[in-house]
């Protein structure tokens, strides 16, 4: 039971085999998994926004933004003995849950999150081995660091393993 690690919105955590790590109900948010199959270690971040530079005053929750969350995941995995050049990534989410015409830029937040995540990972030379992004459906994802298998659950397609 306690082998399941749940990651909430704007949170990030690390899981080691035999643990499994999950985040539920990704809408426009993006779930970023960084892992190493040999060390059987993985980190998962559930980010809401593309860029911490748009943060207003106050204490910064680093897990909320693509840039700071990826940075912190790499640090945490580094403490587990995995250097960033050995990391691989799988990402999911970034949907547009509602379709309608609006000038409001926040309506396009899903695609902007995905673009930001991919650009940052590319800059850090972390290969994205799998992505299930965009569309208009919510996703729940679960990653098993022992097998590097990602399970994606959606309302319309049910369960998919990759």
């Amino acid at each position: 039971m306690n082998n399941l690690i749940k990651v909430g919105m704007a949170e990030l955590k690390v899981a080691k085999s035999p643990q499994i790590i999950r985040t539920s109900g990704l809408g426009s948010c993006v779930g970023i998994i960084l892992y190493n199959e040999k060390a059987k270690v993985s980190g998962l971040a559930h980010i809401m926004l593309p860029d911490s530079s748009c943060a207003r005053a106050g204490v910064l929750n680093r897990a909320k933004y693509a840039d700071t969350a990826i940075n912190d995941l790499i640090q945490l995995l580094g403490k587990e003995g995995v250097s960033s050049c050995l990391l691989k990534a799988k990402i999911a989410g970034g949907a547009q849950m509602f379709k309608f015409s609006s000038k409001n830029e926040s309506m396009r937040i899903g695609p902007r999150n995905v673009e930001a995540v991919k650009e940052i990972l590319c800059r850090l030379n972390i290969p994205v081995l799998f992505e299930d992004v965009g569309g208009n459906m919510g996703r729940t994802i679960e990653f098993n660091p022992a097998t590097s298998i990602l399970e994606i659950r959606t309302v319309s397609k049910g369960l998919v393993q990759v």
Binding site: M9, A10, S24, G25, L26, G27, S28, C29, M48, L49, C54, A55, R56, G58, N61, K64, A95, M97, F98, K99, F100, S102, S106, I109, N136, M137, G138, R139, T140, V155
Partner: peptide, 27 residues
């Protein structure tokens, strides 16, 4: 109100979309 939009999906995925403005200001 703007014209309405509809979605059928997981509740967190739906609600999170309405939290973007708040997430820019706090946690």
């Amino acid at each position: 109100p703007t014209p309405p939009a509809i979605a059928v999906d997981m509740i967190t995925a739906i609600l999170s979309f309405g939290l973007i403005e708040m997430s820019e200001a706090g946690d």
